Simulated scan of single mutants.
Amino acid sequence: MIRVMVVDDDALVRLGLSDLLDGDEGIELAAQAADGLQAVELASAHHIDVVLMDVRMPRMDGIAATARLRALPHRPKVIALTTFDLDEYVYNVLAAGADGFLLKDTDPAEILRAVHLVAAGSAMLHPAAARRLIDRYHRNAHPQAVAARARVERLTPREKDVLALLAEGTTNAEIAVRLSMRESTVKAHVSRILTALEVGNRVQAALTARDAGMTG
């Protein structure tokens, strides 16, 4: 069972997401929080696998909460939920360590799919919005680009192939098919890539790839 916490200051949104999660036999709704501070408190007291995190909230927003969750001994995965696809807050929550983001009007089946994918170690980004968002905030980021290219150069050619596909939001299984590799080999490559790039998850690796100019 995937233990999920819903974090949103809107009670109706929490109710809707809770009802959606309850309909999936592989998911257990473990907790609900009305803001980031309560989310950190609950995650510290309970075993949480995945957090559906609103970005804009009172007391503590989703950005600060995500950073705090990363410091916990058992760090839950975080999927940021936002109303707007071009939003500085979304970029910041990804940079803080979120494992993906979705728009709140995403199809319910895709939200459930995202929970399963992220729990299994993949990333989940709203594809078109992710490209626009990252391009917007990285187009002129020259210092970051130089540093990113230096880190990418630590990778082997095969690892760069894996990183390029990872940056497109593909799963390990999809990368394995496209590169004619075993999925276990892809997982090993991803682990080495995260270490070489000095990042904590696939989303941050994707940001580094885009900074380095590996994707359009």
Rank of each mutant, 00 (worst) to 15 (best):
I2T: 07
R3F: 02
V6N: 00
D8R: 02
V13W: 03
V13K: 03
L15H: 13
S18P: 12
D19G: 10
L21V: 08
D22R: 15
G23D: 11
G23F: 04
D24N: 10
E25A: 15
Q32S: 09
L37N: 05
Q38M: 09
A39W: 00
E41M: 12
I48V: 11
L52C: 07
M53C: 14
M57T: 02
M57G: 00
D61C: 05
D61M: 08
T66L: 06
R68Q: 14
R68K: 15
L69D: 04
R70Q: 09
R70S: 07
L72S: 08
P73R: 04
I79P: 14
I79D: 14
L81A: 01
T82Y: 11
T83D: 05
F84C: 04
E88R: 14
Y91K: 15
L94Q: 03
A95V: 09
D99Q: 12
G100E: 01
D105E: 05
D107K: 15
E110T: 02
R113P: 10
A114N: 01
V118N: 00
A129H: 05
R136L: 14
Y137D: 00
R139K: 13
A141V: 02
A141T: 08
P143G: 06
P143T: 08
P143Y: 12
A145P: 01
A145Y: 03
A147C: 11
A147T: 08
P157N: 03
P157H: 06
E159W: 13
K160C: 12
K160D: 03
V162N: 02
L166P: 07
E168M: 10
G169N: 01
T170N: 13
A173D: 14
V177S: 15
V177L: 15
R182G: 13
S184P: 04
H189W: 02
S191Y: 10
S191P: 10
L197N: 05
A206N: 03
L207T: 01
A212S: 01
G213L: 08
M214L: 08
T215W: 14
T215E: 12
